[in-house]
Design a protein around this nucleic acid. Structure first.
Lengths: 329, 329
DNA sequence: AAGTAAAACTAAATCGTTTTAGTTTCCCTG
DNA sequence: CAGGGAAACTAAAACGATTTAGTTTTACTT
């Protein structure tokens, strides 16, 4: 247990014969400190490896230098989530910011964690995913004027920072591709209906189905976040009942794998009686069944963007919010 | 921007007419504060929703109430990693602890992040994964007496808290199963040789191969952490060159998928000319190719255990370290 | 050379908490 | 009823940083 005491401003003050506030101001580059003094202080600080004490800083200024990533921990989104975390953390490298993770669980109030962060000042900004159209968390954060960025858009998207995957275009491209393969009767396994991006995806698909003159049905009893077995069973049943279907679209790689298991159980083969289109965060569907058509969603880039956007909110609240829409293909 | 000022000990002191230290001691249950005073203070604190200020606490006591999860961000381990994060965060629910994530990147010194945490007191404990036999991080943390827990064992495992999957038994079971299927010539795609758990897995497989009287070769040019295409190509080449092989063992689900893609490219079918055994963190290989034999590694439980073990180190350093070996099957 | 303004620094207070060292109050003993 | 001692509380200091309000020094003006 040899933790040698860290140097503080006081240490530097003693070493230079200056007062503590002088050292503080010198390091922050204030102009009321002499040029040569500033340089001398900087040099000493570097030599002894001075790093500001976060607690002192936070106590005095209220700044935490923490970004809080609050994310849903549904098993189905964990692939995407892992990349989101990785991207966010990557963007924070070489900044003064740290990242704390707060998964929230389906059995608890989504507002709880957010309120906690805001009320106890546990972070300077929040990043959230799984956004609802009228997401109460977004409303709350806007109301409080607390810096945040979202993965996905709310109805008030023009007012806040976000990164979103263009699910409307995804829906369009999916139907377009299947239509090109000569498919006429397509079913879509969409994300949970209350999620904004589900609506986008459905609209895109419907519009393109209209244009292409093909049939599109949204599966009503399952979503792309449902448990694997449920999806597998529903899809198997669908084909066993001979409901006319020659194209399938899945909102996530997980649901796609389950769905494919189901349709194979019913005796179909991809590329033969049916074509399959899916989204994926990590490229592996190609390996799962080479005949699947997959579109990549870049969660890594999303994480990086969101981190930068959140910091921008903290440090330059007067500037316009950063927003990005990833348009597939 | 309506952030109303949070109640502090001072607020309670004013409300009760007591001095600040009295309130502090009353809340912490010190016996030199009268019974009824303690109750009164507690009641007022609850009513106004007092939550201790972390910065104040930290500045005074040095306690951060943060666990730092330092993990490698190899794409291949991200599935497992996601579950590890989730498990750790779950265990921290309803404790005073927070979780910060520091991925470290293959291009940088693994010691950097650890040293930073220890030297700047950024956390009360560290959790690490991807442990080497003589891991310098483990040595450093032991040396400093800094609380930590590892996912995987080092050579000094008896001295520190860990959760590990028994890869020795995994190796044994894998060979055993393949031998039961009548396979005689088995190849193992093991984790990187410098990782401790790679050695364990290899030893287990070799020992069982001896017992069963079958052939076992460790693939020398690839590891289970290599990029998908590299593994695919190597495996494809292996079979195209007709190297006698009728059983394959993979150290991770990712490498398994790639490997299977390779052997199928060479025209083989699982369960036919060759049997495949693999580890997986999330059950989906069953769906990928139903004929694959897979063993589940519980990263969720690992995360939870590691969090509890780390906290135990912080709060009861005198007690024996918590250790757990997950023995498969 | 006296007066003044700018430049360069310092003293003191503050953020919220806990610890150490007292101090006051009260009850009991003899 | 004085004295002793336990019980219950308080004052002051400390952790490390920044901000506000001075103060000293220097340099310039007239």
């Amino acid at each position: 247990m040899t933790r040698s005491p860290r140097p503080t401003l006081k240490t530097i003050a003693q070493l230079t014969g200056l007062a503590v506030p002088t050292v503080s101001r010198a390091l922050s580059g204030a102009t009321d400190i002499g040029q040569k003094t500033r340089e001398r202080v900087r040099k000493v600080a570097d030599e002894i490896g001075y790093v500001p004490n976060r607690a002192g800083l936070r106590l005095r200024t209220g700044r935490t230098f923490v970004l809080s990533l609050v994310l849903s921990s549904e098993a189905d989104v964990m692939n995407l989530t892992a990349r989101l975390i990785n991207g966010t953390a990557t963007a924070l490298r070489d900044t003064r910011y740290h990242l704390t993770i707060t998964p929230f669980f389906s059995d608890e109030d989504p507002m709880r964690s957010i309120r906690h962060v805001v009320e106890t000042n546990a972070a300077d900004a929040v990043i959230l995913n799984q956004i609802l159209p009228e997401d109460p968390r977004v409303r709350y954060l806007l109301d409080k004027g607390f810096p945040f960025a979202t993965h996905g858009r709310s109805n008030w998207a023009d007012q806040h920072a976000y990164f979103d995957f263009d699910n409307f275009t995804f829906g369009r491209l999916a139907v377009q591709r299947l239509a090109q393969q000569g498919r006429k009767s397509i079913r879509l396994v969409a994300p949970p209906r209350d999620q904004n991006y589900a609506q986008e995806m459905i609209h895109g698909a419907e519009q393109e189905a209209d244009t292409q003159g093909v049939d599109l049905h949204v599966m009503q009893r399952i979503t792309s976040d449902d448990p694997a077995t449920k999806i597998e069973d529903e899809i198997a049943a669908l084909f066993q009942e001979n409901v006319p279907t020659d194209g399938m679209i899945f909102g996530s790689a997980n649901s796609c794998m389950s769905g494919v298991a189901g349709l194979e159980k019913a005796g179909l083969t991809i590329g033969n009686q049916v074509d399959v289109f899916s989204k994926e965060a990590i490229p592996f569907l190609q390996r799962f069944r080479p005949a699947i058509h997959a579109l990549h969603e870049d969660a890594l880039a999303a994480g990086e963007f969101l981190a930068r956007a959140a910091i921008e909110r903290i440090e330059h609240p007067e500037k316009p919010v950063m927003q990005f829409l990833e348009v597939p293909k």
